[in-house]
Design a protein around this nucleic acid. Structure first.
Length: 1034
RNA sequence: GGGAGAUUAGCUCAGUGGUAGAGCGCUUCGUUCACAUCGAAGAUGUCAGGGGUUCAAAUCCCUUAUCUCCCACCA
């Protein structure tokens, strides 16, 4: 059946995908030569509930090009595929889905049921992204699909695997090495998702805000001289004050202030340092302290210190040993729990007076006055401002206002509220304002594991390209902060830590021996005295699974187990561990549910998603099992990923792999930018400029999208996706398709396919074989440097610019001549090379061509990548074809400019021809005549009147066009060319006449300039002569 | 505030010391049997501005301007 005029991508892509699938073409090691080097890539796992966006399409195209390129070279290739459980995102998607269905909420449902529901969501949506990757033509080993939560408790059938085990093992190992710790720290709290998030998940955005100024009055009615001075020390302002002025953008946090801080060198406040001020609205006193943090030049120079709600203040509070009081609940509302304010403030006064306190009182003491309790944080802000203003404690200014009744102007005192742009933190998922919150969280002590990750890149063991990525990497890692890895979510790897209460079992049974304690009572008993050791109250279990099942029901019964875990009655950590171990063992043997209540419970938090995806390189290969794949494919060859997750993922993989298995995860990291729209705008749903890769594939085919992706993948720049360009690359595919169709029509595929390059005699055949060899070398060099754009450009230039534009045209006359057979062989070989070389970029169209143009031994995706080189380049053929194509170009150009009808065949005169030119003409006469539409060539001593001149290297031709040409137009054409030549000649002469040029420039540059000058002058002379002849005509 | 990058044809971008390039768009012509998702020809640039190094600068250095991104605690 003859070929269609175009490649039907929509029809063929699915069929070809199925063919690859059915033949296991992409399984690890497929097409590997014995003893071949390994080549492995880990896919950046997309979110399991996600769908393919244009960034995925770009990222995976590049990976696939590398993978296919290596697989065709016979390397032992693995492209590891899989998905990420994506904690917050997936939980969010599932909850949204549940809300839409009108089902129970997550909390109504309970943890186990909810987790099961998310698994269900995961099972349902996994196919989406995977099938979309297949549509792109990604040649992943689908049989090895991994998941970052495979094998987790509660995983349904089909989700076996040991990724969860690997994550747990790493947590336990790091914990045992002292690299993971738990503590009450100020963290970024997302009040929407009610979880801590890491620094990286916070986006700081500038928003309009306000700054208020409040007066904190000195205790005991004291006053002081407030003096301002200029740079020379001269007094510029003096006033007796009974207050200190503070400025804040967050008035509601003043309820938790622990002090007012001023800079130690700030003379304005020197008289009152160490004294106390009344905290407005709060009925308590706080001290004025000194700290280096306040900037005397900013605001009043005095800063309120709210240790529990600001990162700077927290640091000051730590230095000054100030108490921190949490004011908000987990949803960002003012706390409504705990004792009445009168009691709480009494206790706060005791603490301020020196009564010992513990971190526990951060949570147990609620210093929010009744009036504000339960208010949303933004509502509380308004109320606090209003109340402070009403109390006359706002800094005021005179404002002129108009009395509308009387029409008279008068002055009023108004609070000073500065409108001010402030940087506000937002959750990158929730988009709500992040609240610094003092909570118990788990941290990786990154400072301890960062050094090997830095060293690996500094030493070049892992190379980051482009190099600017290395600088960014260093900068972040050199200033690394502890990594908060606990999340208050349900979907994820639950932290393998059990909290235990060490106790005598008798304490928990009533007189009848029944299990009589409820949680409140438990707390009451444990709360009574006893040594408190926060560091010791957790126990990291090496084999948690057995424990989990046993106590799950008990755990579920605890509304908030962590709050009950506060106290453990032991003297040291070791005792805690032993007591727990003993109680667990005890329980395990007795299995008597009445004997012990709540012996242990598990930390309800899950791990940051990036903690598990940080183990992707080893986890997908079966670690901690010593698998053959781990031995073969790790460390991986290259990681291709977006520069935006350099910190989130790349740096953490480096740290974790080096810590866990003491090896870099990959030899090379290729970072690319974000794909933007044609105008360089970030794609966003709200802007409506999102390009859906699947729509692009539907319209233009996956090959066109892929080739376009490769073509725009230059290093460093931004990536602007223009569908007009994709359309152009679709046309490019059609072009090759039609060249193959032409070949089919001319019997090229009928038994002319040869494995190795033919050895033809015709110059054009020799020439195109050499061009293929050049192209192969260019592509290999470009891909070795990750220059996908250069490889794409080489392919485009070769296939369209050389094969289709010239070779196919050259071949037409040869099919009727003595060289017909070798030309068919050569064309078959050359088109095969086009398919092979293009295949990594555009796999569908090339595989389809490969299958339809002959009986093939192997799939194209397994066909040997060529290794031929310069031996196939015939310099003489190259020079001759350059001469031929230049001549044809010249003739065509002259004809077009003289408006010679295309169909008109001309007789050409050869005025001069040296031996080389003569030979070039004789060897290629038929095709020159055909392409330049020349009828005959005759020799003449001089051009007749009314002819146009065609210069060529070593020859000069004339086209007699008397009566056809416009003499003025021909004069203009010649003059224009001469002008251009004159400019070039001027430049070349200028250089060559400069003695410094000859002295300083390399010899070959000088020689080249000389040769160029000769050629230009020769051409100019011919054109001048021609111009002269025309002038004689007029 | 710190860091990185960008500025080349109408548009999107290559080009990193040696005669300014590609694709798209634009103009003219074209139904010759691979292809109109095409062919042939053509026009278009103070390579952001200024200074410097060099025989030679889009390319290296300095500087100014504009833009983008990342990081950062100014209450």
């Amino acid at each position: 059946m003859p070929m269609e005029k175009t490649f039907n991508a929509a029809e063929a892509e699915a069929r070809i995908s199925a063919l690859w699938d059915a033949s296991g073409a992409f399984v690890a090691g497929a097409n590997a030569r014995p003893g071949a080097p390994a080549f492995s890539i880990m896919i950046p796992p997309p979110n399991v509930t996600g769908s393919l966006h244009i960034g995925h399409a770009f990222n995976n195209t590049l990976q696939d090009i590398l993978v296919r390129w290596h697989r065709m070279q016979g390397h032992d290739t693995l492209w590891q595929v899989g998905t990420d459980h994506a904690g917050i995102a997936t939980q969010m998607v599932t909850e949204r889905e549940m809300a839409r269905e009108g089902n129970q909420t997550r909390r109504e449902m309970g943890r186990d049921a909810f987790t099961a529901r998310v698994w269900q969501q995961k099972r349902a949506s996994r196919c989406t992204i995977i099938s979309q990757l297949k549509r792109l033509g990604a040649s992943c080993d689908w049989s090895r699909e991994a998941f970052t939560m495979s094998g987790a408790p509660g995983a349904p059938a089909g989700e076996e695997g040991n990724f969860h085990d690997a994550v747990i093992k790493v947590f336990v190992d790091l914990y045992n090495k002292g690299l993971i710790y738990r503590g009450k720290r100020l963290v970024n709290w997302d009040p929407h998702f009610e979880t801590a998030i890491s620094d990286l998940e916070v986006e700081n955005i500038e928003v309009p805000g306000h700054m208020w100024h409040f007066k904190y009055r000195l205790a005991g009615g004291e006053t002081y001289d407030y003096v301002e001075r200029d740079a020379d020390g001269a007094v510029t302002f003096r006033e007796t004050r009974d207050y200190i002025s503070i400025a804040t953008t967050r008035p509601e946090t003043m309820l938790g202030d622990g002090a007012v801080a001023v800079h130690p060198t700030d003379d304005r406040y020197a008289p009152i340092v160490g004294k106390f001020v009344h905290l407005p609205l709060c009925d308590r006193l706080i001290p004025i302290i000194t700290d280096d943090y306040p900037d005397p030049a900013f605001g009043s120079g005095a800063v309120k210190i709210t240790g529990a709600h600001d990162f700077n203040d927290y640091a000051v509070a730590k230095r000054a040993n100030l108490p921190c009081y949490r004011l908000m609940d987990m949803r960002g509302a003012m706390r409504a729990d705990g004792a009445p304010y009168a009691e709480a403030v009494q206790r706060a006064r005791e603490i301020a007076a020196g009564s010992p306190t513990t971190g526990a009182e951060v949570d147990s003491l609620n210093l929010v006055p009744e009036k504000y309790r339960g208010l949303d944080r933004f509502e509380a802000r308004k109320q606090v401002v209003a109340d402070i203003t009403a109390a006359g404690l706002a800094v005021t200014t005179l404002v002129k206002s108009l009395d509308e009744d009387t029409g008279s102007e008068h002055l009023t005192l108004e609070p000073v509220v500065e409108a001010k742009k402030i940087m506000q933190p937002f959750g990158d998922r929730s988009k709500v304002v992040i609240e610094p919150m003092l909570t118990d969280q788990w941290f990786v002590d990154t400072a301890q594991i960062v050094e090997p990750a830095l060293e690996a890149v500094r030493s070049g063991r892992t190379k980051i390209i482009p190099p600017s990525g290395e600088k960014t990497y260093y900068h972040w890692l050199e200033n690394i902060e502890p990594w908060c890895i606990s999340r208050q979510l349900w979907w994820g790897h639950q932290i393998p830590v059990w909290y235990g209460l060490a106790f005598d079992a008798a304490d928990f049974t009533d007189d009848e021996g029944d299990n009589a304690l409820d949680e409140v009572e438990l707390l009451r008993i444990l709360g009574d005295g006893g040594h408190i050791d926060r560091e010791a109250n957790h126990y990291c279990a090496a084999d948690p699974s057995a424990v989990t099942d046993r106590f799950r029901d008990n755990l579920a019964a605890l509304p908030h187990p962590l709050s009950a875990a506060r106290i453990i009655q032991v003297d040291d950590r070791q005792a805690a561990v032993e007591a727990l171990a003993a109680s667990l063992a005890d329980y395990a043997v007795t299995q008597d549910p009445t004997r012990l209540t709540y012996p242990v419970w598990r930390d309800p938090d899950v791990l940051d998603t990036w903690f598990s995806s940080g183990l992707w390189p080893i986890g997908t290969l079966g670690w901690p099992e010593p698998t053959a794949e781990l031995a073969k494919y790790f460390p991986t060859s290259v990681l291709v990923t977006g520069a935006d997750i350099l910190f989130f993922w790349v740096a953490r993989m480096m740290m974790m792999q080096l810590t866990v298995v003491n090896e870099v995860p990959f030899h090379t990291v290729y970072l690319h930018g974000l794909v933007r729209d044609a105008k360089g705008k970030k794609m966003s749903k709200s802007l409506g400029n999102v390009v859906d890769p699947l729509e692009v594939i539907d319209e233009y085919g996956a090959d066109a999208l892929r080739f376009g992706n490769a073509a725009m993948a230059s290093l460093g720049g931004t990536l602007k996706l223009d569908t007009a360009r994709i359309a152009g690359y679709r046309n490019f595919g059609t072009k090759l398709w039609n060249a193959a169709r032409f070949a089919e029509m001319n019997g090229v595929w009928d038994g002319h396919v040869t494995g190795s390059a033919p050895t033809p005699t015709a110059t054009v055949n020799k020439w195109i074989i050499g061009e293929a060899a050049k192209t192969r070398a260019e592509i290999d060099a470009a891909l070795a440097d990750f220059r996908f754009d250069q490889a794409a450009s080489a392919l485009y230039g070769f296939i369209w610019g050389k094969v289709c534009d010239w070779y196919v045209e050259f071949a037409k006359p040869l099919f009727d001549g003595p060289d017909a057979t070798e030309t068919r062989q050569t064309m078959a070989w050359v088109l095969d090379q086009c398919m092979i070389l293009l295949h990594p970029f555009s796999p569908f169209l090339t595989e389809e061509l490969w299958q339809t143009t002959g009986a093939r031994a192997k799939l194209l995706c397994h066909t040997d990548w060529p290794t031929y080189g310069a031996n196939l380049i015939d310099a003489a053929a190259d020079a001759e074809l350059t001469w031929v194509t230049t001549l044809i170009d010249e003739i065509r150009s002259a004809r077009a400019q003289m408006h010679v009808p295309v169909a008109l065949k001309l007789d050409m005169l050869a005025l001069t021809m040296d031996a080389a030119a003569r030979s070039a003409w004789d060897n290629n006469e038929s095709l020159i005549k055909r392409l330049a539409r020349i009828d005959t060539l005759t020799h003449a001593d001089q051009a007749p009147k009314g002819a146009i001149t065609i210069p060529a290297a070593g020859a000069s031709f004339a086209l007699p066009l008397a009566g056809i040409i416009d003499i003025a137009a021909e004069q203009a054409r010649l003059q224009k060319t001469l002008d251009k030549l004159a400019k070039e000649i001027g430049g070349l002469k200028g250089r060559l006449n400069n003695p410094n040029f000859a002295a300083s420039a390399p010899e070959d540059v000088v020689d080249e300039a000389k040769v160029n000058l000769d050629a230009r002058e020769d051409e100019a002379a011919k054109l001048s002569a021609a111009l002269q002849r025309l002038k004689e005509l007029t």
